[in-house]
């Protein structure tokens, strides 16, 4: 890779109590690429994702995003970064149950201070892009799991982030639904030029990535880059 990576983790160490979650983990994410983080349960892949997204602060090591040291930033700066340049998709339970799907998608824009109307307009466009315009007025509790995840994907992309972090985005879905979510997700991300960091233990999901890194016992093995 000739270009500088967009997001780099170097020698991250993190322990929860006596459990070592990350043990000198390093990984690099290039702009626009889809990277799958694979590995057995409890290997630390979600923890690594949280560190990369600036949600968790490693005990040692450095995370650099676009040349800025995330680990040296104040919490509010990292929050602001997550609002504007990073997107997040989780396995479940990420939509605010009181808000309609449309309002959920508009939420990140509104957190950034966008006017309500404009936010709702672009949220509607994203729902359409993910083929779930019909659930716009419904609450998350009233839609199916696949629809909910598409809404979550729409929400993660609505701010046009440079990196989207997805933690088992299809983990709670059946094959067909999971596949459709991944197709739409990756296609939309490639369209906007967003890099995707995808935590998954499913090979068929990882097959949507450009390359994978394996997390095992808190360490990362980056596999040869194959395009």
């Amino acid at each position: 890779m000739a270009t500088e990576p967009l997001l780099v983790a170097e020698n991250l160490h993190l322990r929860f109590g006596t459990t070592v979650a990350l043990d000198s983990a390093s990984v690099a994410v290039h702009a626009g690429e889809v990277l799958a983080l694979m590995g057995p349960s409890g290997s630390g892949k979600s923890t690594l994702l949280h560190c990369l997204a600036g949600i968790l602060h490693p005990d040692a090591g450095r995370v650099t995003y676009a040349g800025r040291d995330l680990t040296a930033m104040h919490d509010s700066e990292r929050s602001a970064l997550r609002r504007t340049e990073l997107g997040l998709v989780f396995q479940f339970g990420q939509l605010v149950p009181e808000l309609t799907c449309l309002e959920n998608v508009a939420l990140p824009l509104r957190l950034n201070g966008a006017p309500r109307r404009a936010a709702l307009r672009s949220a509607a466009a994203w729902l359409e892009r993910l083929e779930v315009s019909d659930v716009a007025g419904k609450r998350p509790g009233q839609v199916s799991g696949g629809q909910g995840q598409r809404v979550a994907v729409a929400r993660s992309l609505v701010t046009r982030p440079r990196v989207v972090f997805a933690d088992e985005p299809t983990g709670a879905l059946d094959s067909l639904n999971g596949e459709r979510v991944m197709q739409l997700f990756v296609a939309a991300a490639r369209e906007t030029g967003a890099a995707v960091v995808l935590v998954t233990h499913e090979a068929r999901v990882a097959a949507y990535s450009d390359h994978e890194a394996v997390v095992r016992d808190g360490r990362v093995r980056t596999m040869e880059h194959v395009r």
Partner: peptide, 16 residues
Amino acid sequence: RRLLAVLVAFGTRRRT
């Protein structure tokens, strides 16, 4: 708690 953690994760200000 989970929802709140998610909201913070995607950058919601504590103030909000």
